[in-house]
Write a protein that binds this DNA or RNA. Sequence first.
DNA 1: AAGTGGTCTAGACCACTAT
DNA 2: TAGTGGTCTAGACCACTTC
Lengths: 243, 243
Amino acid sequence: MITRSPSLTDQVKAHLKERIVSGAFEEGRIPSETELATELGVSRTTIRDALSRLENEGSIYRKQGAGTFVNEPGLQIKSRLEEMWSYEEVLRDHGYTPSVRVVAVTSEPASQPLAADLGIEPGEQLLVVEKVFLEDDLPVALTYNRIPARLVTGKIAKAEGALPLYDLLDRHCDRQLSYYLSEIIPVALPTHEATELGVPRRTPALSFEEIGFDQNNDPVAQSTSFFRDDLLRFRLIRRKAGA
Amino acid sequence: MITRSPSLTDQVKAHLKERIVSGAFEEGRIPSETELATELGVSRTTIRDALSRLENEGSIYRKQGAGTFVNEPGLQIKSRLEEMWSYEEVLRDHGYTPSVRVVAVTSEPASQPLAADLGIEPGEQLLVVEKVFLEDDLPVALTYNRIPARLVTGKIAKAEGALPLYDLLDRHCDRQLSYYLSEIIPVALPTHEATELGVPRRTPALSFEEIGFDQNNDPVAQSTSFFRDDLLRFRLIRRKAGA
DNA sequence: AAGTGGTCTAGACCACTAT
DNA sequence: TAGTGGTCTAGACCACTTC
């Protein structure tokens, strides 16, 4: 319990999360911060950091002067929108055993708006990877990942397209994906996307338009994704900005 | 600068945010935490708290060993999904001058699933407020707020329906709305909603299905909302869960 | 080697809730 | 009034980037 890396805070958070989901706290009451600090042999600050994160993700709530409690409704959220990372993970969180099918690995010139998003010249070549995520044989999501070709070192085999974007960028571009800036758009599925997802065309669906940034805050990829609402639904917690 | 309430951290955060958006930091480089602490006369911890929040909302980014920098792309986000509170505010953030039209204040019995969400018995009466948010004369959003009638003290005039849900609950139920648990759903707008929003029926749109919880973590309201995607688009930042 | 952000501690005092 | 979470301090040490 006293090893470095993962950080103490992370360990405390994981430990508490485990006790929370296993229902170890009677009546949903979590011991006071001072108690936890003594029990786990860390400072109250560390406990508070861990609790703040758990509160943020909706697992607990705190009432000044009263105590800290398990937040049952918040525990129902399997994957929070702001913390989604790879779609495989999201599907696993939903209890699926996901697989990936690479539809196509192609190349195309960047359109004007795309070039602006990626900070490159219009017409520069983009590597495009089209993937479908399935649970068993049921398609759940379809994504297009577009990466400026000049960032890519070496050739990318079609099989490698199955890698999560993070790993692909890490291996072939030596860049670490740091975050996405995402836009959520409602669409009626076009013919191609509907076919790949196995639903009638014009089915209402969510679409994400995203730009991925690397560790230096430079744009490295643009992604467009479509989801089957009947199989995958997104949830989040909305709070007042100040909190 | 040394008054209590708002907290020191909030004051520091607001101060830094102001300097960031006004472009006061050359080349996007923000002074070191130690410098800021000395300059503002607070502890480094306070500075770090403020910076962490700014980082979380995308205004800055930090690189260990290197420094703290302004995050230009992040500054473009007007309203982050997780921090949306009242729709009037959202519209103001988008540069609109919003107004509200109360379509109807009615009453209906709770359906089975709704009752489960709100922790009441099926068939219990709900107060339903239907509102349209407009910028000038253009409808941007339509919402239904449903509140268990037995929570409401006193009669609610139609004009009062225009109040933000937060204020309505505060005045007539003596409860403070603490957070929403939201589901994002793609829809083809039904006839009534399409008409109120002034678009063709079956237009693709985003819909939120939400449950609002009060300061004691009890459910107090259920809301359904529809948005005109051409006038209001939602953005967010997606990060790895651990970060 | 110098400077930056990341983690952690120990302790003080305040605001609020319960009883 | 006792106990809880909320805020803030001062300082130590570590990991990392930069030169």
